[in-house]
């Protein structure tokens, strides 16, 4: 499986660097979100009870996770293209490891997330965000964002295998990612958010990642909260990763 993961990863990575327009888009989009939302919600900082002094410092880890979520929603489109051609069928009739077929694509997707995360931080810091946490804080953020990317990337791939339609896939992924973005602490401090949002956020994997990242980047991190949220996120990623690999079987039953 590991050898096959490497081969499949290579395939998708080569494909993505041959699409410069797509690369540009995946990089410009998070930059715009960060600057736009940074401007839009500037006033939030003045609301009493808002902990962070700098909103851009608060927002940056949130935008990182939001970007990981949104970009990964598209992950399954490459599977749909493979199904529209005979590539998926040829692969599935070959001895390729199903796990490798999934993991290789997700790894390539996670690499995109990694690059986006670095870029968002570079812009955030250029715009004045400062973090007291050390390199561990950044490491936790990067890992958490890659887990978000992988978890939602594998969900997107599973939906692709089940629906086999580009339109259905994009519809479902947008339907899911907007509430996940807004029912979280990505943009708004839980202290000023309505109670029900905070309740919903407790079950939101994107929020787990956001909390873990903010904590880890803080001056005096609550490591138990960081590790608890990272563990939840890891468990969630493994479960959906496993489930999505099972979706190959469902696809094969329908061809």
């Amino acid at each position: 499986m590991i050898a096959h993961t490497g081969l499949i990863f290579g395939r998708w990575t080569r494909a993505s660097y041959r699409q410069p327009a797509l690369i540009a888009f995946t990089l410009v989009q998070p930059a715009i979100w960060l600057l736009l939302f940074g401007q839009l919600f500037q006033g939030v900082v003045d609301i009493p009870g808002f902990g962070d002094s700098s909103y851009i410092a608060f927002l940056t880890p949130g935008i990182v996770m939001m970007t990981a979520l949104m970009t990964s929603g598209w992950s399954g489109t490459s599977f749909v293209q493979d199904m529209e051609r005979g590539v998926m069928d040829r692969m599935l009739a070959s001895p390729v490891s199903r796990g490798g077929l999934m993991a290789g694509q997700l790894l390539s997707n996670a690499t995109t997330t990694l690059i986006q995360t670095i870029l968002v931080f570079a812009i955030g810091i250029a715009a004045g965000a400062r973090y007291d946490g050390g390199s561990i804080g950044y490491l936790v953020t990067v890992v958490a964002s890659m887990l978000v990317g992988t978890a939602f990337g594998s969900l997107s791939n599973a939906v692709a295998l089940l629906t086999r339609q580009q339109e259905a896939l994009i519809g479902i992924s947008q339907f899911v990612s907007l509430p996940l973005t807004f029912m979280s602490s990505i943009m708004i401090d839980p202290a000023v958010a309505p109670h029900w949002v905070n309740v919903a956020a407790r079950y939101n994997p994107v929020d787990w990642a956001t909390i873990a990242a903010r904590q880890a980047l803080a001056a005096d991190p609550d490591w138990s909260s960081v590790s608890r949220h990272c563990l939840y996120l890891l468990a969630f990623t493994l479960i959906v990763g496993w489930l999505s690999t099972r979706a190959f079987r469902t696809y094969q039953r329908s061809v």
Binding site: R11, A15, G86, V87, S94
Partner: peptide, 18 residues
């Protein structure tokens, strides 16, 4: 079986980006 066979599907089965 998969190791012993070659399969050329009805639809084109190459990766267009590669």
């Amino acid at each position: 079986v998969r190791r012993s066979i070659g399969y050329v599907p009805q639809k084109s089965s190459s990766d267009p980006m590669a």
